[in-house]
Design a protein around this nucleic acid. Structure first.
Lengths: 348, 348
DNA sequence: TATAGTATCGTAAACGTTTACGGAAATTAG
DNA sequence: CTAATTTCCGTAAACGTTTACGATACTATA
């Protein structure tokens, strides 16, 4: 590895000048700067990040905290890949690299964050999969590290966050169901403690109240966000005395199992049960009948997350004067056939 | 941030002793070591990675190179998440952290690798999505950084790699088709340049030859590894004069579209067309009729990758004496209904 | 007791940067 | 022509570690 010292020796100038030339500092002659850059290119010099970090306490990297594990509910590769693409697109403008930090299923998330912060390998963090009570946020708030959360939390809101508009998804869905004549509407929540569950539930209840529909606890179902979970939910639903005529799926990966279980009884989605799912992922576009869902640009979301984070970091603030720090991320509904039938039927 | 210097001052001993105590070096009294560890815990000391890296040229981290992008073909299930989980499980045994390094779609993969190597933030790398001609492998081979590739490449084999047994998948599938009476067998390849395509094709051809079946170029189809691609392939297939009675899908995400397109013509998978897919992902377990496929434990794969990498790194070799460096990763077939019908029918 | 050996610790250099400071040379002002 | 200013560059310290080396005190050996 060629160091700045090698460069200096090769050019017969001091390492200070070399450093200044490489970093576009003012106090250096134009010709010598040219020579330095030329030589750096020739010898294949590239700054050692450890040395730089040690000196100026900065790493030129941003961390994206995710939870790994093959059976991670809801958060498929797809979701993260899209967001990552957006993040990089924005971060690369500032020559910042993105490090994805996967918290193993074996490790306590709070511990993991502590370790990663202590490692000092990033200048800022984006955390995902926020829980209603999220100790990571507590810790990060106390630490000096800038961060932004994908998802709100009850733990504290004195930090930038971007949250998908789950409230809107539930509201729009229920309103649509009601408009089409449904009065008995179920909701399928995920079986983990992610904060989005409580937001969904609250919005669901509020919407029912707005339409003067009584809340029935038995219509709030909970299962894993996958095929099996959807199957279980459909099963539970079919066993109810007073069956619902519509259901909102908090994660549409459940839809597969739901379609499957209904088909077993000769029931068809859209005719016998109205379904709206969240969110319009690639996999979910191939249901038959097609699933009414909500559109979400993961790339744009990633870009917004990066912008939000950078606008809290002094070194980058100038580029993000007018940007919002925190925001609710709106999503549009995409019409499908799964809630097309206007006249509600009972599952008989 | 509390440094080793603070610790030393607090305990009124030298920083050298503190360092030795923290790192389990022999030349330190048992009691002082206790005191140091105690104090480190109390003051919340954690080693600064930059300082350490700078001094000993090691980072205690391993990089996992992936390709980001929302529309990354093929890997839209939880492929990476599963592998990551396995990697971490093995790496954590040696107190190594895993950094996932996503190469943006905007950036040249070779450039990206160079940047990441130069950054010196990992002690070793695992690269994925190897292409038939892969310049990253060229570069890494020349550099001193240990690495292992997930997937073979023609670029060079003088490095550890683990490749899924695509040859076996094709062979077993074709044999099974033939055994059930099929003679006109198609194969659906992915539309990118990943190396697995050529392996699949070769094995497909060899298997046909073994059964004295003439190779028909029109039965080799190519499309994106997703719903749309599967639809296109089914479409193309239905337009053939002499239709195949069986098809092997290199990526089963195509299956959705294929089922859909066939259903449009009233055709049923398993009866009118035998289908085998690769690989048995969570999403793919919910086809109806269920898809015959190949089982793959992503976690175990990740563990093997980590073991292979570590066994090339002097510091960790002692733990991996007898392990294989490179290997073909075997997979078992999982019976489904999609190729159940033994009597071949023509699609008429 | 003298000597060799051992256990424990402090000192200081080194890793590769960045940057405050000062000095020399060159330019401009008077 | 001198003085003031600017331009450019070298020097050296600092960031937080690890580790080779040497020093000291203690223990065992003869």
């Amino acid at each position: 590895m060629v160091s700045i010292k090698d460069l200096a020796k090769h050019l017969d100038i001091s390492i200070g000048t070399v450093s200044r030339a490489l970093n576009d500092k003012p106090d250096v002659n134009k010709q010598t700067r040219e020579k330095v850059l030329q030589a750096a290119d020739n010898l294949g010099y590239v700054a050692n990040q450890s040395g730089r970090s040690l000196r100026q306490g900065t790493t030129n990297a941003i961390g994206f905290l995710i939870e790994s594990g093959a059976d991670t509910e809801g958060n498929s590769d797809n979701f993260f890949m899209g967001v990552i693409d957006g993040l990089q697109s924005e971060l690369s403008k500032h020559k910042l690299d993105l490090l994805v930090l996967p918290c193993s299923t074996d490790e306590n998330p709070e511990n993991y964050v502590k370790r990663m912060v202590a490692r000092q390998l990033v200048d800022g963090m984006i955390i995902s999969a926020t829980h209603t009570i999220d100790k990571r946020i507590d810790f990060l708030s106390k630490s000096k590290l800038p961060f932004v959360a994908l998802g709100q939390s009850e733990t504290g809101k004195n930090h930038p966050w971007i949250d998908l508009d789950f409230e809107g998804v539930a509201r729009v869905s229920i309103d649509r169901f009601v408009k089409n004549g449904h009065r008995r509407i179920a909701i399928a929540l995920s079986a983990n403690e992610l904060n989005l569950g409580s937001i969904f539930l609250k919005s669901y209840k509020d919407s029912l109240k707005r339409h003067n529909i009584e809340f029935s606890p038995e219509l709030v179902l909970q299962a894993n966000s996958n095929d099996k979970g959807g199957y279980a939910i459909a099963d539970e639903l079919l066993n109810l005395n007073d069956r619902p005529t519509a259901i909102l799926l908090v994660h549409e990966l459940m839809a597969h199992g739901l379609y499957r279980r209904l088909a077993e009884d000769g029931l068809v989605v859209g005719r016998d049960l109205a379904v709206i799912g969240f969110r319009n992922s690639a996999q979910a576009r191939m249901f038959s009948p097609s699933l009414t869902s909500f559109k979400l640009s993961l790339r744009d979301l990633g870009i917004a997350l990066a912008a939000s984070l950078l606008s809290t970091m002094p070194a980058y603030q100038k580029h993000y004067s007018g940007k919002m720090l925190s925001q609710i991320w709106p999503m549009e509904i995409v019409d499908g056939e799964s809630d097309a039938e206007k006249i509600p039927k009972n599952l008989t």
